[in-house]
Design a protein around this nucleic acid. Sequence first.
DNA 1: GCATGCGTATGATGACCATCATGCGAAAGA
DNA 2: TCTTTCGCATGATGGTCATCATACGCATGC
Lengths: 200, 200
Amino acid sequence: MTIMRKTSANARAAAKDATHDRIVGVAARAIRRSGYAGTGVADIMKEAGLTHGAFYSHFPSREAMLAEAAAAACAESVANAAEVAASAPPDEALDAMLAAYLSKKHVEQLETGCPLAALGSETSRQAPEVRRIVTRHIKAAADLIARQSADWGQQSAHERALMTLSTMVGAVVLARAVDEPALSDSLRKAALKHLTSSGH
Amino acid sequence: MTIMRKTSANARAAAKDATHDRIVGVAARAIRRSGYAGTGVADIMKEAGLTHGAFYSHFPSREAMLAEAAAAACAESVANAAEVAASAPPDEALDAMLAAYLSKKHVEQLETGCPLAALGSETSRQAPEVRRIVTRHIKAAADLIARQSADWGQQSAHERALMTLSTMVGAVVLARAVDEPALSDSLRKAALKHLTSSGH
DNA sequence: GCATGCGTATGATGACCATCATGCGAAAGA
DNA sequence: TCTTTCGCATGATGGTCATCATACGCATGC
């Protein structure tokens, strides 16, 4: 009758939790690769090394699983950005984040990159739960940016952070959409130049 | 034996062309509302007042139709922006475009708005034909922006136009994704303020 | 006016989808 | 060791999808 959550003393439950996390991890990459609409239950379970039948012992519905996957992708993405910022000199932290976000590598690796860029335009069509999670993520990302540029005063920093985030996301979205590598590079570099130099 | 294109003397063919255009028009709105992946053949035909069977006498495949729909949406969007620019005093043209693009109305009307904002992150997963069309559209939009700000010299204007476009698209994508109206407004206004004031 | 052509409708096909009922097999607890 | 539990697999269900074969009915051209 004991109610156990998260870490269970029970080895069985621990194994189930591990499987659950593995499915979520696979799904977090799948949604960025194929989009919310393009990600099916069977695909994910197969990629996780399971059969489709086991799915509903881990999630109440496909929708719930998309929400968990979105949360995982968002958490991973913000943590990654925070680490980039932390491992650079404080006065270069913002530039380091911008360089990483607007790098060719990030544009190419959509599957492990920022979910805002990979799923941005699909988000408005998702369930409320997903939108709630993404909204929290956007706030966290904007705060992280604003914190790296405290020299502009509170109000202005927050406003500027929202604009910076918009430019970052838009540039990566367009750089990925385009089918000409040269234009893709130009989009990245134009955003990078104007975001770093205009901060002078 | 006479080969007729576009406008046919034949009334039958003209009616078919009209139907074709009606389907494309419906589809151009449907893809922005529901995404590429969320737009089915049957949905579109029903919305056009036809049954699904007639579809394949108008298009060789669903994919071909998505490409035509994307082209129509892009053309409509660029024409609309050009009109906004043309009906304003030359030195206020860019600001007028920005105000319209970053308006609350545009954020709310995704079905008739900019396809880059409505479909941006889905584009990288589409057929080459769609990506080609979108690439052309991005170039046209950037050119239109650059033309309204010739005072910065050729090279700089083009680079700045790419950045401006990225910010516009990113801001609208995020403003739509978010589920808090206040944050949505902040995203729009932050982009608007920084794009218009930083221009001098 | 009659026959022909062609745009559209009906209906079928097979693939894929989310969801769930049931059964197996291994680990947990006694 | 015996029984109970439960994570996972098998397989079925009903729905939706893109695609196509066929049939109808009206407008066109003789």
